[in-house]
């Protein structure tokens, strides 16, 4: 079986890119895309390890993650559209009704 370490490295890099995107970017759409990159990094790791071990759990888990990611994207975009209707902006720094 193939060695998963290269794939784990790839998934680590992808995950890092996703985290950096969430932390740095201000546009909510881009933040959503970064979260998707994080989830796909997880999928890479699961599938690589699953195939290395000859175990289906990894692949099944990847399917579950994809399903959940789709549901999350649907809800996230719906919230985003509702906000855009009220405020005409999707810049996260301009959303500050609530503060302590």
């Amino acid at each position: 079986m193939m060695d998963p370490s290269a794939y784990l490295l790839l998934s680590g890099i992808l995950f890092g890119i996703g985290v950096a995107g969430v932390v740095v970017r201000k546009n909510v759409l881009i933040i959503l895309m970064s979260v998707e990159i994080m989830l796909n990094a997880v999928n890479v790791a699961f599938i690589a390890v699953g195939s290395h071990l000859g175990d289906v759990t990894g692949s099944v888990f990847a399917f579950m993650v994809m399903t959940v990611a789709a549901a999350e994207a649907a809800v996230g975009l719906a919230i985003l559209i509702a906000i855009f209707r009220l405020k005409e902006t999707i810049d996260i720094t301009e959303l500050s009704v609530l503060k302590w």
Binding site: V35, M38, V42, A82, L98
Partner: peptide
């Protein structure tokens, strides 16, 4: 809506960590 967006973004971010 703002509460929902903040909760959603951080929640999804946290799910990413949990999954990894």
């Amino acid at each position: 809506l703002e509460g929902a967006l903040k909760y959603f973004l951080l929640g999804a971010f946290a799910s990413g960590f949990l999954l990894y």
